[in-house]
């Protein structure tokens, strides 16, 4: 095909420009606000926030207690609140119980503490199997749990989001929150991994 023009918009780019045109003309969106939202979710929120919540729960039993009783308030008190974090519940792993979070409907996820979900969390493969075959799914993530361990699967909704508090790794006695934070990965807070072991 001869290249007889300079610019070609990808069909999805053209569709988004069309949507932006319509919504701006009707006064429903403001391009500056759109840019601010993108900046927030590309650069400002991410799993580091959740890692700080978990590290505090490990280091401070009173905080862990507040997190267990009212996760929304405990997390908001650390400055992490906003969209898709309005109603939070923290679920704590124990030696007997492992928690796993999914959204079978679509992709509900606690944005203020984890940022936006990874691709696999949004994929039908994970969403359809996490409830029916959690042990297999976890094994595929490299997390093999003993048969004696109970796996609880939490299905997120538009109203309620979950944060897994993984078990504190052995060998971290006396560590401060900053050091503990580095052991808490995004996957550990979804429940597809354990917290990292101390190096």
């Amino acid at each position: 095909m001869p290249h007889d023009h300079d610019n070609e918009l990808d069909p999805m780019e053209a569709r988004l420009r069309a949507l932006e045109t319509v919504l701006t003309r009707k006064g429903l969106i403001d391009p500056a606000a759109i840019d601010a939202i993108i900046d927030t979710y590309e650069h400002r929120v991410g799993p580091r926030n959740g890692a700080r919540v978990v590290a505090r729960a490990w280091a401070d039993p009173d905080f862990a207690d507040r997190l267990r009783r009212d996760a929304t308030a405990a997390i908001a008190a650390m400055g992490f609140s906003g969209r898709q974090g309005e109603h939070m519940r923290a679920v704590f792993n124990t030696p007997q119980t492992h928690n796993l979070v999914v959204c079978t409907l679509c992709s509900c996820y606690p944005w203020p503490v984890l940022g936006l979900p990874p691709g696999w969390y949004k994929a039908p493969a994970y969403r359809s199997r996490a409830v029916m075959a959690p042990r297999e799914v976890l094994a595929e993530f490299g997390l093999t749990l003993p048969d004696s361990m109970t796996i609880r699967v939490w299905d997120s909704t538009a109203e309620l989001r979950y944060l897994v508090v993984p078990m504190r790794p052995a060998g971290t006695e006396g560590w401060d929150e900053a050091a503990l934070t580095d052991l808490v990965t995004r996957d550990a807070m979804i429940g597809t991994a354990r917290a990292l072991e101390p190096a």
Binding site: D10, L16, I29, A33, I34, I37, Y41
Partner: peptide, 16 residues
Amino acid sequence: PFDAPWQAQAFAMVVA
């Protein structure tokens, strides 16, 4: 979080 700018735009439009 996004593979292309249009994805970020689409996400932000819904939030807005």
